[in-house]
Computed example of a mutant assay.
Amino acid sequence: MTKRDIDTPALILDLDIVEENIRTMGEYFAARPQKLRPHFKTPKTHEIARRQLAAGAIGITASKLGEVEVLARAGLGPVLLANQIAGPAKIDRFFKAAARISLIGTVESEFNVREFEAGAARAGRAADVIIEVDTGMHRCGTETPDETVELARLAKRAGLKYRGVMGYEGHAVLIPDREKRIAAAREALTTLSRHVEALRAAGLAPEIVSAGGTGTFDIAGNWPDVTEVQAGSYVFIDGAYRNVRPDLGRPALTLLSTVISRRGARAIIDAGMKSLTNEFGPPMVKDTALKVVHLSEEHGGVAAGESSLEPGSKIEIIPSHNDTTINLHSEYYVVRGDEVIARWPIEAARAYR
C-alpha cells in the first residue's frame, strides 16, 4: 500500500524525517548539562515517546492528565505534568498514575498544595511537585521570588516532595525576528533565574529547573540555571516553526487530502475544520507555494492559481499547527518514502481531561 491509496483526509507521518529530527535534537543535548524532556502534547503517541527516550531524553513532559495516563499505560516515564490540576477526581487520578510511573506534578498556589496534600493522605503516598513561575505567559505561575520561596516551604511542610521550578517562555518561541526572539526568551529566563536565586538563598535550591520550547530550545538549552528543556514540536515541525526556525528540521507530518472541485483559480479539498486547523496561519500545500486560504466544516479552499490541481488529485498539506490538527485524528499512516509501513493509534488525541 502506498500513501496515494489512503482514503482522505488522513495524517501521514514520514518516519525517516521523524527519526532525523529526533536524532538531531538528541545530539544537541547529548554533550551539555541541560537535558531534553520532550513534550508529549505534539506527537500524542507512545511510539514517538519511546524513540525520544531511546535517543537520550531524560523523560517526557505532558500537558494534561489524560496524556499522563496514556504514558502510564505504556510504562513510559519519568513524566512531568507541566500543568495544574484541580479537584479530588483529578488528584486521585494523578496518584493512580504515579503508582505506575515516576510522576511530577505542578503547583502554583496554596490551593494546589492543599489538594495534593489531601490526595496524598487518601493515596498513602507523597507527591513529587515543582512550582510554576510566570515568566511572561501570564497564565499560571508565581509572580514574585518571595511567593515562590513561601510556596516551596509550604509544599515541604505539607509533606510534598518539592523538586524545583519551571517556567515557559511560550510568548517568545514563535517570534519571527531572531534577535527579538532571543531578547524575549532571555528576559523570561532572567525572571526564572531570579526565583532560582531566591530559592537557593533560602536553602531550597531546586533540583529541577525546567523551561524552553522548540523555538527557544537553544536559548534555554544554554541558560546556566536551566536543567531541562521541554521542546516538543521539533519532532514533526509544522508550518509555523518552518517559517520561524527553518534550521530545525523538515516537516514530518502532512495531511493527505483530495481535491473534490476546481473552479477557476479555486480548488476545493475534502479537509475542513474537522480535520485541519489554521490558528497559526494558512496551511501550505507541500512542495508548493499554494495555501489553504479558507476552511469550513468539511471543505477547504486552496488558492490554486494556474496549478494543475483537478478533481481527484491528492495533495499533502503541512498544517500551520500540528498539535491541534493531530488532536482531531485517531491514527497516523506511517510511511517510508511512499510506502505505508504501519498505522499508529494516536492514543492521547482528545485526552484533554
Score class of each variant (00 low, 15 high):
H329V: 08
Q230V: 07
T135F: 01
T61W: 01
E298A: 10
H195I: 11
D5S: 07
L11T: 02
N327M: 06
E279K: 08
K41S: 00
P33G: 00
M25H: 09
E67Y: 10
R181Q: 07
K41I: 01
R51E: 04
E197Q: 13
R186I: 12
V335C: 12
K161I: 14
K161R: 15
P38C: 11
L309T: 05
D238N: 09
D238K: 07
L13V: 14
T2V: 04
G105A: 14
I219G: 01
P9E: 07
I48A: 01
L103M: 13
V335D: 02
I60S: 00
A211M: 08
L309H: 03
T191D: 03
T214F: 03
K90R: 14
G66I: 06
L255W: 14
A304M: 03
A231N: 09
T254Q: 14
V340G: 10
G87N: 11
A10R: 09
I12H: 13
D128R: 15
A201M: 14
V334T: 06
P311K: 13
T45H: 04
H195M: 15
W344I: 04
A211V: 00
I219S: 00
I175Q: 00
P176M: 08
R157H: 13
M284F: 15
A72D: 02
L71T: 06
R194Y: 15
G75T: 04
L295E: 10
R139M: 09
K156G: 13
G77K: 02
G124H: 11
G272V: 06
H195C: 10
I12C: 11
E147K: 12
R73W: 15
I237M: 12
S261Q: 09
L81A: 05
R114F: 04
L328A: 10
I60Y: 03
V302H: 05
